[in-house]
Design a protein around this nucleic acid. Structure first.
Lengths: 112, 112
DNA sequence: ATTTGTACTTACCTTATGGTTACTGGTATT
DNA sequence: AATACCAGTAACCATAAGGTAAGTACAAAT
């Protein structure tokens, strides 16, 4: 049995942020929503080659974690719009920092 | 076949940072090294209940990614010390931001 | 009544990450 | 010669995240 004496982190303090930042698609979704509400289909197109299943699951989880909010409209055909909560907005600069870290340390094309 | 037209991110611009930040243990290792060099066994104790295999693998990968440097000493019994590179140091404030985001949005004990 | 558009859901499969247990190799100490 | 310390390796297994392909639900248009 290993000791935990020196570990402040044995209960994984980064697990919430990791489940978002560490996900393949969630940072992209949050970044896409940084300036405006976007509806389901449009957001899907922006995010790119994500499967419908995973896309819907990500949105549900982000909503459950109160990172995004879902608004339904009774228009026809019905639409649903997603936007960031303040908690989600607070992640944007962190995501940007990570992207900047990559741009600095690996030669990559920066988005226009 | 899905279109990539709207996606600037289809080639996953966050994949490098994600492989570090999204890992279970790497952020903890980097955070532990933020102030000083630490040797293998001591670092293992600080990180906590990580298996030996995964711990060694994380260190190798972090070294290959030039996040940490490994120094061997010919002392007896031999020792190895790990420390952050500038590239690794640059990740520390981001890791701290993520931890602060968690402390703010989820009620958790902050480390002393 | 059938098709179209939007927003999903279900079943099944693959791969990556991490865990468990045991073992290696070099250098003292006893 | 046997044991202990330090820094790892190797073989095998479990879980979770993501991918594929197909189907569901509702309203409106034709």
């Amino acid at each position: 049995m290993k000791q935990k004496t020196f570990s402040k982190y044995s209960d994984c303090p980064n697990k919430r942020s990791k489940s978002i930042i560490g996900s393949r698609w969630k940072p992209i979704i949050i970044y896409a929503l940084r300036k405006r509400k976007i509806r389901f289909g449009q957001l899907h197109a922006i995010v790119g080659d994500i499967s419908a299943k995973v896309f819907a699951k990500c949105l549900k989880e982000l909503e459950a974690d109160e990172i995004i909010v879902r608004e339904t409209f009774t228009d026809t055909p019905g639409r649903v719009e997603y936007s960031l909560t303040p908690k989600g907005v607070a992640l944007v600069p962190i995501i940007v920092s990570l992207l900047q870290w990559e741009w600095k340390h690996y030669e990559m094309n920066q988005p226009s």
